[in-house]
């Protein structure tokens, strides 16, 4: 069971990344803060009796569910006010337009050295590119690489198969590389 100090340290370590994850997803500072706060409270209330090493995955599951709940609520609200979404194609899975993304095979994003990424203005370009990723690609990329979960853990947090995680991660990486290259940054 995690002590109060251990839980505090864990939350302090993950809170900024959690906020950024939520912000990339919902693009609203207040909503992102609410999502992080709800996730922290849920973890502290329901799972603080769990061992410390189980907390990262539990927290990510709670956070991703909170983000999905926000999408769901936003979607319900927008459907209440407008019926335009009915003309926007696949209504069953609006949050996962993975199949719509086409990567130009002519672009080889890994061809050059990585020095350009160190430039200061790169941050905003990278964050913008991440925001523009399809939600499931962004989720897989951030959980797998930024949070350092392995493929099985990422699949558990996302509620999908390990194969889907690999596909989402690969496509996210290529999409990001292409987006950076389009901005003149060769990764």
């Amino acid at each position: 069971m995690a002590s109060r100090a251990e839980l505090s340290n864990f939350l302090a370590e993950v809170e900024r990344r959690a906020y950024k994850q939520a912000l990339f997803a919902v693009r609203d500072e207040d909503a992102a803060l609410d999502i992080v706060q709800d996730s922290m409270m849920r973890l502290a209330e329901k799972y603080s009796d769990k061992p410390l090493d189980e907390l990262p995955l539990l927290f990510q599951r709670i956070l991703q569910n909170a983000i999905r709940d926000y999408y769901r609520r936003s979607r319900t609200r927008s459907e209440h006010f407008t019926s335009l979404s009915a003309f926007e194609g696949d209504d069953e899975n609006p949050g996962d337009p993975l199949e719509l993304i086409e990567i130009d095979d002519e672009i080889n994003p890994f061809a050059a050295p990585h020095a350009a990424l160190l430039q200061t203005e790169t941050l905003s370009i990278v964050e913008e590119a991440l925001q523009n990723l399809p939600p499931r690609q962004r989720e897989a990329f951030l959980l797998r690489y930024w949070e350092g979960l392995d493929i099985a853990e990422t699949a558990a947090a996302m509620g999908c198969t390990e194969g889907s995680v690999k596909t989402h991660c690969s496509r996210a990486t290529h999409t990001l590389a292409a987006a950076l290259e389009a901005k003149g940054i060769r990764p």
Partner: peptide
């Protein structure tokens, strides 16, 4: 892999973003 190397570099940039929050 190159893909992972690139992803790590992106995450390094993102880490800098959290420091500048």
């Amino acid at each position: 892999s190159r893909e992972e190397q690139f992803a790590r570099q992106i995450c390094h940039v993102l880490d800098r973003g959290t420091e500048k929050l």
